[in-house]
Design a protein around this nucleic acid. Structure first.
Length: 289
DNA sequence: ACACTATCCTGCAGGC
DNA sequence: TGCCTGCAGGATAGTG
């Protein structure tokens, strides 16, 4: 479920159960997800206290005592579940999703945090906390989209001379870290930029942001803020850590709305679907230029 | 350097 | 009903 608003919503949901709490015991139920788990993963988690839970881009970072940080990425289908069931697990045998419960953290406070990931594109790593920024995963990461560093001149610099479509550039985590397919589609629609438009064409010859590009940072920040306020988007049956559903999917203007009337006031267009870099793009050919 | 593809994996919806 | 195809919120290695 993982773009920035979803990961941040997960972080907020997990924090009460994890921050300040000690991991009594950890279960690692398979050798790997996207990558192999670290050596002695479960044993290295046992007894550790979680000092804080942060987010960087789409990564969740749990800082542990002892100087290590547990780095978690949800991939496409990762989710966390928190239950306070101290008496023992209730796992319905027909609950298929339990087959994909890959990691369980048994907390000293009686809580239990389970990581479930059917597609296993997610991963967990342990990294020295003081070397996090230098780690390969974080080294090349672009700006946080909600940071003030994301502004029109930053985008003009990043897009200048690029032939790749705006969609591809916004999905590139080395430029902006945290956007994904949904929010890129939504942000481009909000500011009237076609996802097919070459990035370089949105920049003036002098390297300044064009009129449309100037609106993009605000569009990105607004759609993310709206999604955060809604608890993220819940496609299919994805749930937040506390079991509740985000509801921003009801506010999508173009994503997964092929054939619907364009919601832009005064626009008579119809939402279209295109495929870019193997992924669906939704946009209005009428008002996105 | 850049642009584009194929790929990892499972589940689900839609067509026949 | 069942089988098949395509598609899914991500990110990377590999190709030209």
């Amino acid at each position: 479920m993982p773009e920035l608003p979803e990961v941040e919503t997960v972080r907020r949901g997990l924090a009460p159960a994890l921050v300040g709490a000690r991991i009594l015991r950890a279960e690692q139920r398979r050798p790997d997800l996207r990558f192999p788990f670290p050596d002695n993963f479960a044993a290295r988690l046992a007894g550790r206290r979680i000092l804080g839970l942060r987010r960087r881009a789409k990564y969740l970072l749990a800082d542990l005592d002892g100087g290590e940080t547990l780095v978690m990425h949800l991939g496409m289908s990762g989710s966390f579940r928190v239950d306070g069931d101290i008496q023992g697990a209730f796992h319905h045998p027909r609950d298929k999703s339990a087959a994909h419960d890959h990691v369980v953290l048994h907390m000293e406070n009686g809580g239990r945090v389970t990581y479930n990931d059917p597609r296993r594109f997610g991963f967990m790593l342990l990294v020295q906390s003081n070397g996090l920024d230098a780690h390969k995963l974080f080294q090349g990461l672009g700006v946080e989209p909600l940071d003030e560093a994301l502004d029109a001149s930053f985008l003009a610099h990043a897009f200048r001379g690029r032939a790749a479509p705006a969609k591809a550039l916004l999905l590139d985590q080395r430029v902006i870290a945290g956007l994904g397919n949904i929010y890129v589609c939504e942000a481009l629609h909000r500011c009237g930029i076609s996802p097919l438009r070459a990035g370089g064409k949105l920049v003036t010859a002098a390297g300044r942001p064009g009129a449309l590009l100037a609106r993009l940072p605000q569009a990105i920040k607004e759609v993310l803020a709206d999604a955060l306020a809604a608890g993220g988007s819940s496609l299919r049956d994805h749930r937040q850590a506390d079991g509740s559903l985000g509801y921003f999917q009801h506010s999508f203007r173009v994503y997964d709305r092929e054939g619907a009337a364009c919601p832009t006031p005064g626009c008579k267009g119809t939402v279209a679907r295109a495929v870019q870099s193997g992924r669906s793009t939704f946009y209005c050919p009428q008002c996105q230029k």
